[in-house]
């Protein structure tokens, strides 16, 4: 009897648990639209900016630190290489006897380019492996596209550098450029044929196997060099 009475009271009182206010439907819709469009948040009617809270962005939609830090590291390495190369290169205005300056080989620069190239090829291989194995199935094409663009930038720097003086490396970088450009241009919702074109291209051009050959397995390319 007492239990029954308590149950009734519980049932009535439960309806007052965290009573929701009126649904802020317009405010939420504005944020949903902005996020789906990938754009900026819209202004509220009261003039305040309706913040997009990072906490509410699905993890899958957030930029991956793992993806983004590769190109940044490679770019830094390239910058060091280029800097060292410039420092060690002969200066035209130097008044010193030209014979002495001319015989100093830019050895440090070559090593830096080699390290940067190996690093870039290693990261590209890892990225393409990841892309082929998971990204093409899990809908992270937009993130892959961003990463590909950054790798592409590094790739073009290397193509224009002494790193590409070796014929095999230049050909590999050129083929890699094609693949990265295709991924970079993926639409947010790519069709299966788009993805198939890329993965088939990877197979046909043998880019993956050439990348694996070019990158020493298990070795950290920077170890013992710098």
């Amino acid at each position: 009897m007492l239990d029954d009475r308590l149950d009734d009271q519980l049932h009535d009182a439960a309806r007052g648990y965290n009573p929701p206010p009126e649904t802020p439907r317009e405010e939420m819709w504005a944020v949903i639209r902005a996020k789906r469009a990938g754009g900026q948040p819209e202004s509220r009617a009261d003039g305040r900016i309706n913040e997009l809270r990072l906490s509410s962005v699905p993890p899958s939609a957030r930029p991956s630190v793992r993806f983004l830090r590769w190109p940044v590291g490679i770019a830094a390495l390239l910058a060091i290489g280029i800097g060292l190369g410039r420092l060690s290169a002969p200066r035209p205005e130097a008044a010193a006897p030209p014979a002495v300056a001319a015989v100093i080989p830019p050895r440090v620069s070559e090593v830096a380019y080699q390290v940067a190239t190996t690093e870039h090829l290693g990261q590209s291989e890892a990225f393409l492996t990841l892309f082929r194995a998971s990204v093409s199935r899990s809908g992270n094409e937009q993130l892959a596209s961003v990463t590909a663009r950054q790798l592409l930038a590094t790739n073009r720097l290397l193509l224009d550098s002494p790193a590409a003086s070796d014929g095999r490396t230049r050909l590999l970088l050129q083929d890699l450029e094609l693949v990265l450009a295709q991924i970079a241009q993926l639409s947010p919702r790519p069709t299966s044929p788009d993805l198939d074109l890329i993965t088939n291209g990877l197979e046909d051009s043998g880019v993956m196997s050439r990348l694996r050959t070019a990158v020493p397995s298990g070795a950290n390319p920077t170890q013992g060099v710098l």
Binding site: N18, P24, M28, V31, S56
Partner: peptide, 16 residues
């Protein structure tokens, strides 16, 4: 809202 008891969180979770 009933589950979170907080307007900001309820908006975030609903949007998501």
């Amino acid at each position: 809202f009933r589950m979170s008891g907080d307007l900001d969180r309820a908006q975030d979770y609903t949007q998501e």
